[in-house]
Computed example of a mutant assay.
Amino acid sequence: MTPHDSASPTATVRLDHTAVYASDRYLSAEFIAAILGLEVGKPFGPFLPVDLGNGVTLDYYEKRDEPIQSQHYAFIVPEDRFDAVIDRLETVGVTYYADPAHTEPGRVNGLFGGRGAYFADPDGHNMEVMTRPYVRP
């Protein structure tokens, strides 16, 4: 077995897609696509995809009869596109915060030498945009 063989224990593992529960998959997918400057794809079975452009897709799945449990989704955006994301949040009247607990409204953080902000999507998912990934030991 070689290191690049998909059956190899040392082969690279990467996220392909994740389901995002929403009370209205169209509203939620359009929201995040608009904020991030992306497009919503064509429905795929019960899913409405938003391709993030790095091989990962958010597949919005509608759950109307159950409460949606808030999840956290973090997105790396290029430094030169960060201000546009913040502008789009302000344009649609969504408050952004410097912290994940949403106690510092209208501010961005400077973590890890970059910039970041948190905001809620229509179902209360805690979304994060940042220009630098977290530094891990």
Results as ranks from 00 to 15, higher is better:
1 M>T: 13
2 T>C: 11
3 P>Y: 05
7 A>D: 13
8 S>H: 14
8 S>K: 08
14 R>D: 03
16 D>K: 07
18 T>W: 00
21 Y>K: 07
22 A>M: 01
22 A>T: 00
24 D>N: 14
24 D>V: 00
25 R>K: 15
25 R>M: 00
26 Y>G: 01
26 Y>V: 08
28 S>W: 00
29 A>E: 02
31 F>N: 04
34 A>E: 10
34 A>M: 03
38 L>T: 03
39 E>I: 01
40 V>P: 06
42 K>Y: 05
46 P>L: 02
47 F>K: 01
48 L>H: 07
49 P>K: 02
50 V>L: 11
51 D>T: 04
51 D>K: 06
51 D>M: 00
52 L>I: 11
52 L>D: 07
52 L>S: 07
54 N>C: 13
56 V>L: 03
59 D>W: 00
60 Y>P: 03
60 Y>R: 09
61 Y>G: 01
61 Y>D: 12
62 E>G: 09
65 D>Q: 13
67 P>L: 07
69 Q>S: 13
72 H>A: 11
72 H>Y: 09
73 Y>N: 13
74 A>E: 05
75 F>E: 09
77 V>H: 04
81 R>D: 11
88 R>F: 01
88 R>Q: 05
89 L>N: 08
90 E>M: 02
91 T>R: 08
94 V>Q: 10
96 Y>E: 09
97 Y>N: 08
97 Y>E: 03
99 D>I: 04
99 D>L: 05
102 H>S: 15
104 E>P: 02
105 P>K: 11
105 P>C: 12
106 G>I: 04
110 G>K: 06
112 F>Q: 13
114 G>A: 13
114 G>Q: 07
114 G>C: 11
116 G>K: 02
116 G>I: 00
119 F>M: 07
119 F>N: 12
120 A>M: 06
124 G>M: 06
125 H>Y: 04
127 M>P: 09
127 M>A: 10
128 E>D: 10
129 V>D: 12
129 V>W: 08
131 T>E: 12
131 T>A: 12
132 R>T: 15
135 V>Y: 10
137 P>F: 08
